[in-house]
Amino acid sequence: MIEARGLTKVYGEKTAVDGVNFTVEAGRVTGFLGPNGAGKSTTMRMIMGLDRPTSGSVTVNGSPLTRHTAPLRDVGALLDAKAVHTSRSAYNHLLAMAATHSIPKKRVRDVIEMTGLAEVAKKKVGGFSLGMGQRLGIAAALLGDPQTVILDEPVNGLDPEGVVWVRNLVKYLASEGRTVFLSSHLMSEMAVTADHLIVIGRGRIIADAPIQEIITGKGQRSTRVRTDQPDRLMQLLAGTGVSVEVQERELLEVKGLDPRQIAAAALENHVMIYELTPLQASLEEAYMELTKDEVEYHSLITTGAVPVEAGGK
């Protein structure tokens, strides 16, 4: 279990993480979702004791990592696929890591096999592709058979087979009762991997809920309405908390009212409706909705209605 309380990190003028509170529970995959620059990696580095919090604290199983007697056996992390000396072989890298905790060579060979690195294990890491680097990082994270696994953008640079492998791996690890904390800026990946989602934007937690709740709850539901009297219907529906967007000449998208209320208003005033479709926000839309004010680096939006993916490496 990972617990952050008032966790804050300030770099000079910039507040990277701003007093966040969250708990990552054991036995499920917790996704850590946010645009680039939102504070995901900084938070993860603070969990690993690499960055010192400006204020607040973060603990793993009740104590900061610096107080753990066998850190690699408690927490394994992939923070950066490049956290390896480029001139050393993958095998020797893992061997040196293992030596700090007297982890046997057999385990080193096992994680190499497990991550599909057997053929390149004796080669210098400098020549690895991003995908192989990710696999080596995951191998290092699993080395100590840890109770808590932290993976920062693990599917970056992986081929489709690797993406599925990571997905199954993290689900399996969670099913064993481990704490799995996984960051990504790809909501589509989170939708199929995570059980629980913590959304961060500009250093603040925007949402912390089961993934289903985020899809159905936070993303505001809307209804598509086709009518031959759009202006009249808009007048009828107008009210606080209601927004109506004209999409085509006879097509409206209504937020803040459910389909039944729209139909009732139309019936009462003899306005004909010829389509009434409830729209469920996809996770992607929910994410955009949650982070639209929190994106650090705005992309230039060309067409008004098309959401632009926030960031992307």
Binding site: N61, A70, L72, A96, M97, T100, H101, M114, L169, E176
Partner: peptide
């Protein structure tokens, strides 16, 4: 398979796990 990742123990909840940690001699070896 990924299965091996947790074949040994099934741990839940809090507390730190047993097993050798980084003593000076081990770090020196590393």
């Amino acid at each position: 398979s990924p299965r091996d990742a947790g074949s040994r123990t099934r741990r839940t909840g809090s507390g730190t796990s047993a097993g050798p940690g980084p003593t000076f001699l081990r770090v020196l070896n590393s």
